[in-house]
Simulated scan of single mutants.
Amino acid sequence: MSFWPEFLVIASVHLLAVASPGPDFAIVLRYAVRYGRRAAIFASIGIGLAILLHVTYSLVGIGVLISTTPWLFQLFSVLAAGYLLYLAQGALRAKAPDTEQAIALEQSAAPASRKAFVAGFITNGLNPKATLFFLSLFAVIISTDTPLSYKLIYGVYLSVATSAWFVMLSMVLTNSRVRGLLLLKGYWFDRLMGVLLLLLALHLLYSIF
Rank of each mutant, 00 (worst) to 15 (best):
M1T: 08
W4M: 10
W4E: 15
P5C: 04
P5T: 06
P5W: 02
E6I: 02
E6Y: 04
F7R: 06
A11C: 11
H14R: 04
H14T: 03
L16N: 12
V18W: 04
S20L: 13
P21C: 02
P21N: 04
G22K: 01
P23Q: 00
I27D: 02
I27S: 01
A32W: 15
V33S: 14
R37P: 14
A40G: 06
F42V: 12
A43L: 02
S44K: 03
G46S: 10
G46E: 11
L49Y: 09
A50V: 01
A50H: 02
I51C: 04
L52H: 09
L52Q: 08
L53I: 06
L53V: 05
V60E: 06
I62P: 10
V64R: 15
S67D: 05
S67W: 05
L72F: 13
L72E: 07
F73K: 10
L75H: 08
L75Q: 09
S77C: 07
V78M: 09
L79T: 01
A80P: 01
A81L: 10
Y83E: 04
L84Y: 05
L84T: 02
L84C: 09
L87H: 01
A88H: 00
Q89G: 14
Q89V: 15
Q89M: 14
A91Q: 05
R93N: 15
R93A: 15
R93E: 14
P97N: 11
T99D: 11
E100C: 11
E100D: 15
E100F: 11
I103R: 15
A104H: 13
A104T: 12
L105M: 13
L105Q: 12
Q107S: 12
S108E: 12
A109F: 04
A112L: 03
A112G: 10
R114L: 15
K115E: 14
A116D: 08
A119V: 01
G120A: 04
I122A: 09
G125W: 03
N127P: 06
K129F: 05
A130K: 01
A130N: 06
T131A: 00
F133N: 04
F134K: 00
L135V: 00
L137T: 00
F138C: 01
V140Q: 06
I141V: 06
T144G: 10
P147G: 00
L148E: 03
L152E: 02
L152V: 06
L152H: 09
G155D: 00
V156L: 13
L158P: 08
S159K: 07
A161Y: 15
A161V: 09
T162W: 09
S163G: 11
A164T: 09
V167H: 15
M168K: 12
V172W: 11
T174S: 14
T174H: 13
N175V: 09
L181D: 07
L181W: 12
K185M: 09
G186K: 08
W188Q: 12
F189L: 12
F189E: 13
D190P: 11
R191P: 14
M193H: 07
V195I: 03
L196K: 01
L198Q: 05
L199Q: 12
L199I: 05
H203E: 15
L205S: 09
I208R: 08
